[in-house]
């Protein structure tokens, strides 16, 4: 009888232990998630917190980690947040440089006529379909504002 009781209590204790462990992670997850900024995903497994998502800058990334570390029951924090790259301004070439570079780029396409005005390359004339992609690649590298393609495709 005594053995049975002991066994029973052990089973209950074990069950409580496992049940007790699970909501703990869930509770930690909920607590941290509530404090973190939007766009940050919090995952918790056995007290180990993983942060994922994209944030605006390094400071936000570091702060998110601090918030997670400060939470009770957290054993470790894996900070997998990525920082959004800052927007590089669009560079558009000056017409003087563009005119020269467009002349160089279109030299091997004698059926193509190119005019440059205010950063816009206007293409007229005709071109073989197979050559079009090469021409467009060459012109796109010259930092135009726009390529206005009015070419007839042969």
């Amino acid at each position: 009888m005594k053995t049975t009781k002991l066994l029973m209590s052990m089973v209950i204790a074990t069950t409580l232990f496992f049940v007790g462990c699970k909501p703990n992670d869930a509770a930690i997850q909920a607590a941290i998630q509530a404090k973190e900024a939007a766009g940050i995903t919090v995952a918790v497994a056995k007290g180990e917190v993983t942060l994922t998502g994209e944030v605006d800058d390094e400071a936000t990334k570091a702060k998110a980690e601090e918030i997670a570390k400060a939470e009770k029951g957290v054993k470790a924090v894996i900070n997998n947040l990525t920082v959004k790259p800052a927007d590089v301004p669009v560079v558009i070439a000056e017409d003087s440089a563009l005119i020269k570079n467009v002349a160089d780029a279109t030299k091997d396409f004698p059926t193509v006529k190119a005019e440059v005005k205010d950063g816009v390359i206007l293409l007229t004339g005709e071109i073989k379909k197979a050559s079009l992609i090469t021409l467009m690649q060459h012109l796109s590298a010259l930092k135009p504002k726009k390529i206005d393609n009015k070419l007839t495709i042969k």
Binding site: A141, K143, I147
Partner: peptide, 26 residues
């Protein structure tokens, strides 16, 4: 890789006639 992107571009905008994208991938 560059050529692959240009193929995708050509699928979205056949023959690059829209004039609403400058794809500068070196």
């Amino acid at each position: 890789t560059k050529d692959h992107l240009w193929e995708v571009y050509n699928q979205i905008d056949p023959n690059f006639t829209s004039g609403d994208l400058v794809l500068n991938v070196n």
